[in-house]
Nucleic acid binder design. Structure first.
Length: 607
RNA sequence: GGCGCCUUGGUCUAGCUGGUUAGGACGCCGCCCUCUCAAGGCGGAGAUCACGGGUUCGAGCCCCGUAGGCGCUACCA
């Protein structure tokens, strides 16, 4: 390939002892520096907050976005150490927000780096053009709670603004990505109702949408094309340094108290050729600006600022030809016209690198919103040892999708000071990035279970019936489909949390079991044997529906001078062999007259 | 090591321009309701707002500093 404009590419000298190390200031006590930076940050935050309030009060539509540019003092022109800078930084002197209605610039306009020039992007939560968000999981396992929450926020934001929600599979890690995992993720998202407008279609490797394919593994040529552009512009270079070598160098640098070099040994064309003849391909690194700062506005964290010289050249294409996350995500987000990137804040530190890539490629960066992570009870990243963390597990345990949506929405977001139960529809209507929290949240399965109880109670028994049947089937308790299941559902839904708890407590409805000793004792204690004849008589004659049955029993007790409670206890224990059951009259009708009579007869033999 | 982010009861959170008995929810305890258990209703315990200074008549909110947790610094994403 042609390699024009070589002169412009000499943004930085190559070689591992490149200039940048020399340019480093003398190390100061890190503690002192750290504290200072923190203070600066806090001060800035304080100013932001005050400005934000002022603006909000003034009736400004978008509290957060406006004050950012007010805050930003006119950027002093650093003197443009290198000529290319003239067309650089996006600036936003006019204070308008136009990135959304402008497609990414064609690459040939790509400005080269100009060292020392701040690279700024602006974020604008005030939506002026169609919103496009995406969820981009790597299919290396099932959909987890954290991923589901990220997907939810992206989905909510898109739906809230009438935008487009895109699903993209980041399957560049060929060894860990599996077809099975893709299917599971699709299935779980569908179950949650987080439907996507563009992305994988069906369960195969197909895609729908104008910017596909939506599997990164199918987009290799695209990444190669953009790598070529970067290389041509002198912003990417090949290296053969192994991972071990890189690590050794870094550790040595730290041990010696010097900053690790940000540059790596660039292989010459001859070297690349020679290695290729030996069957080795280089990895490609992106050339970071060696000075200046990269700034961007984060919709939840505010103004972010990173020094370029502290970020090393990073690999964008591996020696196996696959792009790395930071590269593929940027190329795809740009090409797919993503306007708002909502993702876990573990990506916050990667963002300046990505912003540099956007710039290098001539793309306008999207708005970023880094949402807090979800942790386990021990405040560590959520993982298997925290119990069920996969969406699929919750589905299998009989959780309702609206439960997950409601609960997950409240992890890092709130509507107001007292709303806990929020229907999905309301979520869509009310979601706002401005109310997203900054700190990590601990996932609490107990609260989730409570919430599921609420939604199960709210649900239509006819909807619950097949779900409940599935749970019993799993426990080996069968019964043909039919209205009986709907009646069971309405009897059971009042006292449940996870539907999976049901079979253990209610197996007696399906088969006779040895009575619990406590139930047997209670049957005797409440005078069961003495009432038996009367109760059998009553059951034989009564209309077998909950209402009439209750009326009949109350009448019977009245006439016989029996305590209603005792009669209930006798029937419950006698018929179920248990202390706790669904409502007695529902239980009786579920069992049916004949079965009740038979079981009561057996109970007559207890002693 | 460097850089970055975060910090209100056990947990999720509210707290908008400084003045609230720091509000709500889960969980916990008690009472009521009640055919058991739940659900529901009512009430209670539980927060020196990470810590230390400062400004102020007054600070969870502002300023300075410290600590802790987490993330990035990978040819993981």
């Amino acid at each position: 390939m042609a390699r024009p404009r070589v002169d412009q590419q000499r943004v930085r000298q190559t070689g591992r002892s490149g200039q940048r190390a020399q340019g480093l200031p003398h190390r100061r006590g890190h503690r002192q520096r750290h504290g200072h930076a923190g203070a600066l940050h806090r001060r800035r935050q304080g100013r932001l907050r005050r400005l934000g309030r002022r603006l909000r009060e003034a009736g400004d539509r978008g509290p957060r976005q406006r004050f950012f540019h007010l805050l930003r003092a006119p950027q002093p022109d650093p003197g443009r150490p290198r000529g290319a800078g003239a067309q650089g930084g996006p600036g936003r002197a006019d204070g308008r927000h136009r990135q959304h209605d402008r497609p990414p610039r064609p690459l040939r306009d790509s400005p080269l780096w100009s060292a020392g020039e701040p690279h700024q992007v602006h974020a604008d939560p005030q939506v002026t053009a169609p919103v496009r968000t995406r969820f981009a999981p790597s299919p290396t396992g099932t959909l987890h709670i954290g991923g589901a929450r990220t997907a939810l926020f992206n989905w909510l934001f898109a739906r809230r603004h009438g935008g487009t929600f895109i699903l993209r599979m980041e399957d560049t890690d060929q060894v860990r990505s599996t077809r099975e995992s893709v299917e599971q993720v699709l299935r779980d998202l569908r179950w949650l109702g987080l439907t996507w407008d563009e992305g994988p279609a069906g369960d195969d490797q197909g895609s729908v949408g104008p910017y596909g394919p939506y599997f990164q593994s199918q987009r290799r040529e695209i990444y190669v094309r953009y790598l070529d552009k970067l290389q041509t512009a002198g912003l990417a270079y090949p290296t053969f340094e192994s991972k071990a070598e890189v690590e050794a160098e870094r550790e040595a640098a730290i041990a010696e108290g010097r900053a690790p070099s940000g540059a790596f040994e660039e292989a010459t064309a001859d070297q690349v050729q020679a290695m290729r003849e030996k069957g080795l391909e280089p990895a490609w690194r992106f050339r970071m600006p060696e000075s200046g700062v990269t700034e961007f506005e984060d919709l939840v964290h505010g103004s972010m600022r990173f020094e370029n010289r502290l970020m090393a050249d990073f690999v964008i294409v591996r020696s196996d030809g696959m792009p790395t996350y930071n590269f593929a995500a940027v190329v795809d987000d740009a090409l797919m016209r993503i306007t708002h990137v909502l993702r876990g804040d573990d990506h916050l530190s990667n963002t300046p690198r990505q912003v540099c890539l956007y710039r290098a490629l001539g793309f306008e960066p999207p708005a970023f919103a880094h949402i807090p992570m979800i942790l386990g009870a021990d405040k560590q990243r959520l993982s298997k040892r925290h119990g069920a963390t996969a969406v699929g597990e919750y589905r299998a345990q009989g959780f309702l999708p609206e439960t997950l949506l409601n609960y997950l929405a409240l992890l890092g977001w709130s509507l107001d000071d007292k709303t806990t139960l929020i229907e999905t529809e309301q979520l869509v209507a009310e979601f706002s990035i401005e109310r997203v929290t900054k700190h990590a949240a601990v996932f609490d399965p107990v609260k989730l279970a409570w919430m599921n109880g609420h939604y199960v109670r709210k649900a239509d028994p006819a909807r619950l019936a097949p779900l409940i049947r599935e749970q019993f089937l799993k426990a080996g308790l069968e019964r043909p489909e039919g209205p009986w299941w709907t009646r069971l559902a309405s009897a059971l839904k009042e006292k449940v949390r996870a539907l999976s708890e049901l079979p253990a407590e209610n197996a007696f409805l399906f088969r006779r079991e040895a009575p619990e000793p406590e139930a047997r004792a209670k049957f005797l204690a409440c005078g069961g044997p003495g009432m038996l004849a009367g109760l059998l008589e009553l059951l034989r004659g009564a209309e077998f529906e909950p209402g009439p049955l209750e009326a009949a029993l109350r009448g019977h007790c009245e006439a016989q001078g029996i305590k209603f409670k005792d009669a209930v206890a006798a029937l419950r224990c006698g018929v179920s062999g248990r202390l706790v059951t669904p409502g007695l009259f529902e239980t009786l009708t579920l069992l049916g007259r004949e079965e009740c009579l038979a079981r009561l007869g057996e109970a007559g033999g207890w002693s």
